[in-house]
Design a protein around this nucleic acid. Structure first.
Lengths: 181, 181
DNA sequence: GGCTGTTAGTTTCATTTGAAACTAATTTCG
DNA sequence: CGAAATTAGTTTCAAATGAAACTAACAGCC
């Protein structure tokens, strides 16, 4: 172990002791973005390591499959919107998945730039397999939360995501495009 | 817009309609890992784009600074544990931050492999600056949540993170090492 | 029709990433 | 003690990433 003399604060933006000028302290372990990042990272890598490592899918590839499993047919750009993955990443994931015959594409006759993406039967099978495992993970993760807590969690995530989306605007207007999520 | 005939389920692992064999459906928009990922991504990139893009810090660099600002002195591996960043990433972030004279390192005399890391005065100034902005972002993100909701959120994140950490074990025993977070 | 601008998606290329190998210091244990 | 195993941290190298440029199809407008 290394060293010591740490300052413990137990509120973010601790109101300073009146003697000092306002210098808000960042109590990292209570800082929401940090906590979200740690939790999300933890969960994503757990699931990846355990469940779809063996299938040889990368995380973006799995995300795309998950979207398709749920919302097909969709266009690539809708996948981007829903996953927040970069369009390059999505383009490559789709290419790889098509190569493996897990995803199929049909050019939209009304607009030949777009294409409708969906899972092949084989893709559906794999999706089903991984989905079962992922849901099991989620179930275990949520064990110990009461039904009320789950409801609360649901509402909170919804609210926060809504705010976060609203607050993101600056980077040149973006289409919301998805009522749900 | 593309296409259509979507299935709407509004619960994860929807109990199947008795006529079909159990095929749990992954209702992505209700799937916790997915929602966490989207939210966390949204928040992290918002903060990055707005606040420390100008300082020229990368996300890992900022994370390291945030840890040091809060917990210095710490070793590099403790930074890894706390951020869940890869040790290579941390090593490089530290190298860059030292180059910029934002971070300083003192070799631990008791164990000359380790070093105690901390912010330089200049690093502290920058940290302080960014922290203020980040906290402001957090404040705005949490606006609209009642005090009770915030408490609930806090508890939920704590619980979930605890579970997630516990469930991660498989990948060859890991030291918990941090009571907090 | 035919410019001008926009959108869907891909390709290029320089940067970032992380697994694996490595160095160096420390600990374990016969 | 000293060989073998472990840990902190760095370097290497191949793969993943994403910003910017590009292609192709569409939309608006005169």
């Amino acid at each position: 172990m290394i060293g010591f003399n740490r300052n413990y604060f137990h509120m973010n933006a601790a109101t300073t002791p009146a003697t000092k000028p306002a210098a808000p302290m960042l109590a990292l372990e209570h800082f929401l973005p940090y906590r979200l990042s740690v939790l999300s990272q933890l969960v994503s890598t757990s699931i990846h390591d355990r469940y779809f490592q063996p299938s040889g899918l990368t995380i973006p590839q799995w995300r795309v499959m998950a979207i398709l499993g749920r919302f097909a047919p969709v266009s690539a750009s809708e996948v981007c919107d829903r996953t927040l993955l970069d369009k390059v990443t999505v383009s490559r994931a789709i290419a790889a998945l098509r190569q493996r015959r897990l995803v199929q594409r049909t050019v939209d006759p009304g607009d030949r730039r777009r294409s409708a993406l969906g899972l092949t039967p084989e893709g559906q099978r794999l999706h089903q397999q991984i989905a079962a495992l992922a849901l099991d993970y989620e179930r275990r993760l949520l064990q110990g939360l009461t039904s009320a807590e789950r409801t609360a969690l649901d509402r909170l995530l919804q609210k926060l995501t809504g705010h976060a989306r609203a607050m993101r605007m600056p980077t040149s207007a973006r289409q919301p495009r998805h009522p749900d999520t």
